[in-house]
Amino acid sequence: MRRDRLGYLFISPWLIGFAVFTALPFIASVCLSFTHYTVASSPTWVGLANYQTLLFDDPSFWTAIWNTLVYALVAVPLGVAAAFVLALLLNVEVRGIAVYRTIFFLPHIVPVVASSVVFMWVLNPQIGLVNGILRLVGIEGPAWLQDPSWSMTTLIMLSLWGIGGSVVIYLAGLKDVPASLYEAARIDGANVVQRAIHITMPMMTPVIFFNLVMGIIHAFQYFTQAYILTSGGPQESTLFLALYLFFRAWRYLDLGYASALAWIMFVLVASITYGLFKTHKRWVHYE
């Protein structure tokens, strides 16, 4: 009993923090989503009016849903695949591998705001580095962030900038694959590709699954880069759910409406995550 109490004592800062800063706001936002609330005045009960308007009378909401889904469906698998391939390459024992690993991890710890501002200039259509290089080979690059037909693609490409964190997780997973499996496969005559497909990939599926779930959750919370680089534009082509929620809450002073939006977002993320968990027995292999 004494040890249990000590245990709770140790985790109490986190428990209190979770209760005050996560659990309570979480519950409060459910209640607020059924109200009209502008911070200054008390919330007034409006029933399902916020949900009704969001679902049936707010085209920007559907644009934000669509943009978020496109981002999640393209950027997340792309990031998972790119990080996995990179981890495989960085798992090869060659001279200076620690330096390579550091180089690929560094962007992950650069503040997103700082890297976004740099990208704003790098991707400038007229004076930016990217279009400058394209011009050298005779290509006139697009307005990466200013053209609605390119802005989403650009943000998806930029999402690869921070995959260093996932790479480290994959690397840790790769280190955990028992050497005996490779040895047995080699004795059975399996080549490099066969070992990669039949040993590395299956053994890594728990890590891939973890990164996939976390990636989906992060995709639905995608905010900072879009806020800094495009502010949801041009033409709402990069208006994501989290960004729209922010605008509704803090720009248009509609916290009740924003809470309803947050809950729809939560239900979406929870459903997708639940769907992934339902399927994971079919393709995730645990030792």
Binding site: N91, L174, K175, P178, A179, Y182, R186, V192, R195, I199
Partner: peptide
Amino acid sequence: SEDPFYDERSSRDSH
């Protein structure tokens, strides 16, 4: 050494 994905340190790491 022909196996780029094999790391003999894995077994040492488990220990």
